[in-house]
Amino acid sequence: MKPAPFDYYAPDTIHEALAHLARHGYDAKPLAGGQSLVPVMNFRLAQPSVLVDLNNVSELFFIRPDGDAGLRIGAMTRQAQVEHDALVAERAPLLQDAMPKVAFPQVRSRGTYGGSIAHADPSAELPAVSVALNGRFRLRSQSGERWVPAEEFFVALFTTALEPDELLVEIALPAMPPRSGWSFMEVSRRHHDFAMAGVAAVVALDGKDLCQQARLVFFSVGDGPMYARQAEETLVGQAPTPEAIRAAAEMAATADIDPGSDIHASAEFRRHLARVLAGRALEEAFGRASDANNK
């Protein structure tokens, strides 16, 4: 249970970090909070020959307001900091709701927002929350930078749009839509353990109290965050009645997700959980949206 040897670099700037990644390519791994990378290195499931430690890159640690009620979060911002940040609470209550569910307190002390995104564990909360909030990720390399929508970033199991010489440097979360509501729910056997199924929801109502948007994004029920587009289609333009919500939850659980079976839960049980969670999350989110309406 000891990592294989590696060369270690601890740059102070993004510029230097990108130079290390460019030089070493696939042999190098950026080290963020290390809460997923170090375990797999301890097991020797991963044996990178070069680690580029980002913990001294101070320009990657920040939470800033963005435009009209949006947020910019530096990739190395600790999960514990996101959890307790007043601006996050005000502008992204869904994210604040989800944070205590991310692993354990000791893990959130070190774990980072960007690290969780780049790792792309299908049972992780933050990828799903980022897709639900319609977030975008800023990727930089020596040859330039690009913004990738969260929806397009997660390519497959533990696989993202990041090239080996690219670094995720920043997460942008836009303002919540007007007259919107959110909900975050998951089921796990033990407090803070990986969820057997979970969902992040952001819904919005139009001027006639009809559903304008219903972004339901599941985790732990597929190869990555699963945006339930067919469930959303059944709801848009409808009044969010209990019947409509039930139909959407049914659609989500049968058509939009692709759960597998493992030691923690069978695929069938995960579908059941997804159906129940979708119904509850939509009910809570629409409730919040119509409360916002009354203010």
Binding site: Y8, A10, G34, V38, N42, S109, R110
Partner: peptide, 18 residues
């Protein structure tokens, strides 16, 4: 678990160089 700059962390998930 130890305290690292006052915060509780898993010392098995950090390197001494850090």
């Amino acid at each position: 678990t130890v305290l690292f700059d006052g915060e509780p962390v898993r010392s098995c998930l950090m390197f001494a160089v850090q």
